[in-house]
């Protein structure tokens, strides 16, 4: 017998009404009498379902509707229409039982008390979520070990680095062992080492606890390391819902290689190394197929051109999505 999905979304819509402000006195006057209300469809008929224990990536350009969808799934935002079910609850009802099993970590919005050590916020959450002493100790010890933060949980949050803060935010959110976890840009602004630690942690946590996790990120590496399945949302609609491997094979075939030159170069001089995506005489970006990156860089380094710096970036989500539309 197939079990019921832990998250079910059917025909979800969110429309915002706003008053269009146009410049000029004439329009200000007009608005006084009759404000023209415009509609923006942030989420337009989105449907999907998620099984318990899945670790899913939510991708999409800024303003695509992915954060709006997450907010409706968590109970922050009221849907305009459609059905949302998470763990059998309607999130917008904001029932206590729902909140007790749910957690949302938002990259920029901290829940830790700024002037106190993280430990105090942990203890507060223990009380809020009614976590038993044993569970608390067990969860805390395990996560502190995995994230390697033993030395800092008793330092004031404002004295911690961004990476340390983020790790503690994660711990605070997971102390009550939620069944469903949303992570909104969890590695934003972090250094490479911290990013990796957090990724490893999320992966292990999901595997061991079977927590259902939805992750949004602008970093392809986050998604690549963690998610088997991804959902791409653009312009309020689901553009892709399937396995990441399939998507990568199909669309994210390139890396972005940016070369900084000591002396100015011409398009003609560098054009032979690859497809130019951005050009300035001292800085050129190329779109290079993943497998060719090594060769391409080797070729440039052994040429006569004097290289100041090289950057290799993942093809960003925007261009992957652009590819999806243009191909």
């Amino acid at each position: 017998m197939k079990s019921k999905p832990i998250i079910e979304v059917k025909n979800l819509c969110k429309t915002y009404e706003f008053v269009e402000k146009q410049p000029g006195i004439k329009y200000s006057f007009k608005n006084l009498f009759k404000a023209e209300k415009k509609k923006k469809e942030a989420v337009n008929d989105v449907s999907f379902s998620i099984e318990e224990g899945e670790l899913i990536g939510f991708l999409g350009p800024n303003g695509a509707g992915k954060t709006t969808t997450l907010k409706m799934l968590s109970g922050i935002l009221t849907p305009t229409s459609g059905k949302v079910q998470v763990m059998g609850y309607e999130p917008i009802k904001r029932q206590k039982e729902y909140k007790m099993q749910f957690a949302f970590v938002m990259g920029q919005k901290m829940q830790l008390w700024w002037d106190l050590p993280p430990m105090e916020s942990f203890l507060l959450n223990k009380k809020i979520y009614e976590v038993s002493d044993e569970d608390f100790k067990k969860n805390l010890d395990e996560m502190v070990e995995l994230l390697d933060v033993k030395g800092i949980i008793n330092k004031q949050v404002r004295q911690l680095s961004l990476g340390e803060r983020m790790k503690c935010e994660l711990i605070a959110a997971l102390l009550h062992n939620p069944k469903v976890l949303f992570l909104d840009e969890p590695t934003i602004g972090l250094d490479v080492v911290a990013q990796k630690k957090i990724r490893d942690f999320i992966k292990k946590y999901n595997k061991e606890r079977k927590t259902t996790i939805i992750l949004t990120s602008h970093y392809m590496e986050d998604i690549a390391q963690l998610c088997k399945r991804i959902v791409i949302i653009d312009l309020g609609k689901i553009v892709y819902d399937g396995q990441l491997d399939d998507l990568i094979a199909k669309y994210a075939s390139n890396k972005k290689v940016t070369i900084y030159f000591e002396d100015g170069v011409t398009k003609k001089e560098v054009g032979k190394f690859g497809n130019i995506s951005e050009f300035e005489s001292l800085k050129v970006s190329f779109e290079v197929p993943r497998n060719d990156v090594k060769n391409m860089i080797g070729g440039i380094l052994t040429s006569d051109l004097i290289i100041k710096d090289i950057e290799i970036d993942e093809e960003d989500i925007e261009s992957i999505i652009r590819n999806i539309f243009t191909k």
């Binding site: 109970g75 206590k96 749910f102 920029q108 919005k109 901290m110 829940q111 809020i128």
Partner: peptide
């Protein structure tokens, strides 16, 4: 103003 209240909405308190 800074959106912190969102966290409070999500907590059972």
């Amino acid at each position: 103003r800074n959106g912190q209240i969102t966290n409070s909405i999500l907590k059972p308190m």
